[in-house]
């Protein structure tokens, strides 16, 4: 057992699954997407999930985030079963305890950069004015201080992804879930975004789980989960 593994064992699981299954109905047939997936991710980890198309990695990510519901099995976030929570509780969880970053950024087009970033604050019934310092700091981190009044359309793909990351960070969540965050970006911008994730993970200690097709992107993480046909292959420690 190496030192890293020893430290891992000491850390708590931030999120874990138990016999997680997901299937879709096609006609009269049930098509399994995930079969008995059991993973555990510890606080502070940077985990990459890789696998071929259709292996179920994005589905797993959305189940971890409570956006989708499993056919059977359970997901525990900080030891709370998120599928037993009401929709309202899940939404509180999504804005306070985790942040989502998508391949196509998924920003609200008619809101400015800072309005997009402050969405979780606004929806948490907090006053945006109380988060001015955090907003400035996050804008500084993602390098968009000068473009805070821009709308998404006025930004490049990389800049939009930075806004999405800033939005995920504003309420200092414990976990960020990223679905192919650089899948829609050129390699240079992709590298910049991955370095940003790396910094966030190292400096803020935020756990990151990303789904990616890119070996380079996966290399920024400290653990790799490989999936195939809805099943998790042996975990690889980086």
């Amino acid at each position: 057992m190496n030192k890293d593994m020893g430290r891992d064992l000491e850390m708590e699981n931030i999120i874990r699954t138990e016999k997680l299954c997901k299937s879709f109905k096609v006609g009269t047939n049930d098509v399994p997407i995930l079969e008995d997936v059991e993973i555990a991710i510890k606080t502070g980890e940077f985990v990459s999930i890789m696998g071929p198309s259709g292996s179920g990695k994005s589905t797993l990510l959305y189940l971890l985030g409570g956006i989708d519901e499993p056919t059977s099995g359970r997901v525990f976030l900080q030891e709370k079963d998120i599928n037993r929570m009401k929709d309202k509780e899940k939404s509180v969880l999504r804005r306070k305890s985790m942040g989502f970053v998508f391949q196509f950024y998924n920003l609200v087009q008619n809101l400015t950069v800072e309005e997009n970033i402050m969405l979780p604050v606004t929806m948490d019934k907090k006053k945006p004015a109380d988060y001015k310092v955090q907003l400035d700091e996050i804008l500084e981190i993602v390098g968009l201080s000068e473009r805070r009044k821009y709308t998404p359309r006025e930004l490049s793909g990389g800049q939009q992804q930075r806004v999405a990351i800033a939005r995920a960070l504003i309420l200092s969540p414990a976990l960020i879930l990223a679905d192919e965050p650089i899948g829609n970006l050129d390699s240079k911008t992709g590298t910049e975004i991955m370095e940003l994730f790396y910094r966030i993970n190292k400096e803020k200690g935020i756990t990151i789980v990303q789904v990616t097709h890119s070996e380079e992107a996966a290399a920024y993480g400290n653990r790799l989960i490989r999936m195939k046909d809805g099943k998790v292959l042996e975990p690889v420690i980086m």
């Binding site: 929709d87 939404s91 804005r95 609200v108 969405l119 939005r167």
Partner: peptide, 16 residues
Amino acid sequence: KKEYAILYSVCMSKGQ
């Protein structure tokens, strides 16, 4: 629909 899905995924419940 997409706008609602985004809001749901990052900060809002369906009730909100």
